[in-house]
Nucleic acid binder design. Structure first.
Ligand SMILES: [Mn+2]
Ligand SMILES: [Mn+2]
Ligand SMILES: [Zn+2]
Ligand SMILES: [Zn+2]
Lengths: 153, 153
DNA sequence: ATCGCTATTGCAAAGGGTTGCGATAGCAGG
DNA sequence: CCTGCTATCGCAACCCTTTGCAATAGCGAT
């Protein structure tokens, strides 16, 4: 019987998180218990998380977790490309975990729902700014507000 | 000799700020010294301001100005359509004063410069989301990040 | 001019996020 | 294993913004 193939990257044996410790040390930084805690939390999740949620998750594993250390570690992981921060509709921080193909978000001020911007749609926006202004947009950094199809006055 | 014509709305005799007091009272709200102070500050400016700047300007005219009152008055003025809030690249609040034709903003993470999105360019983005998703975008609510033409690696 | 209703204020506290600083503790080397 | 350098930590303080609450003060009516 052949070994079962993992369905997602998160279930497979190899994960970018496995190399986190090495990469941190290789860059002259230190592998500390606080950083290990955050990496374990992030490894167990996918998609998006708010900074506040991450602090809460870390505190579950280590009661002594401090916000400033989490924020500083997130900055470090962002430098390594393991997370990428953005802002929700209210300006609060959100993190994309393992941002391979990052995407933008839409928020409806009518119903409060959010959607991910599909690649085709995002491409139109990116190309408009690129061709008209030579500006390379990072759509994933902010949540664009508006009204969804179901919420027009 | 004919009277000199004002060059801008800000210099003309008639301004939406003149009706602010009436409109506030007409809605059942009260015209207070604190609100008068903020309206005077806003009347003397154009374009964009951060909430923090507004608080500082109010404090110049009235040393006793309190942040919470300024924020609450800004909410009221936003309901009346006299200002419109948005968020800078870092998520902090910015206010568009007298938002007749509101526009979006671009921020370059390379050089830190910001630009207003021109109407033609904004229209492309608005139409893309409208036609593909039926979503009516409010481009003025966030500052879109990226790299300007002069800052490509 | 006075009265009463209630909108508004100032304050204090809290949540989200950043930063300077002295103390701690990785980790490379002997 | 011990030592020393310095990256990192925890803390306290601060900035930005919101909210509950008791006291104040608009303003319409008498
Ligand atoms: Mn907002
Ligand atoms: Mn940001
Ligand atoms: Zn909606
Ligand atoms: Zn630039």
């Amino acid at each position: 019987m052949p070994p079962k193939q993992p369905a997602t990257a998160a279930e497979s044996g190899a994960s970018p998180w496995d190399e986190a410790a090495e990469r941190i040390r290789a860059s002259g930084f230190r592998w500390t218990p606080q950083r290990r805690t955050l990496v374990e939390v992030l490894r167990a999740r996918e998609g998006h998380v708010t900074a506040t949620e991450l602090i809460a998750c870390c505190r579950e594993r280590d009661q002594t977790t401090t916000p400033s250390t989490v924020y500083r570690t997130l900055d470090l992981l962002e430098d390594l490309g393991l997370v990428k921060h953005g802002h929700g509709h209210d300006g609060h921080e959100e993190y994309h975990i393992l941002p391979q193909q990052v995407h933008g978000h839409l928020y409806c001020v009518g119903c409060g729902a959010t959607w991910e911007i599909r690649p085709e749609t995002g491409a139109v926006i990116v190309e408009a700014l690129a061709s008209q202004l030579g500006f390379t947009v990072d759509l994933s950094h902010v949540t664009i507000s508006g009204r969804c199809a179901g919420c027009h006055d």
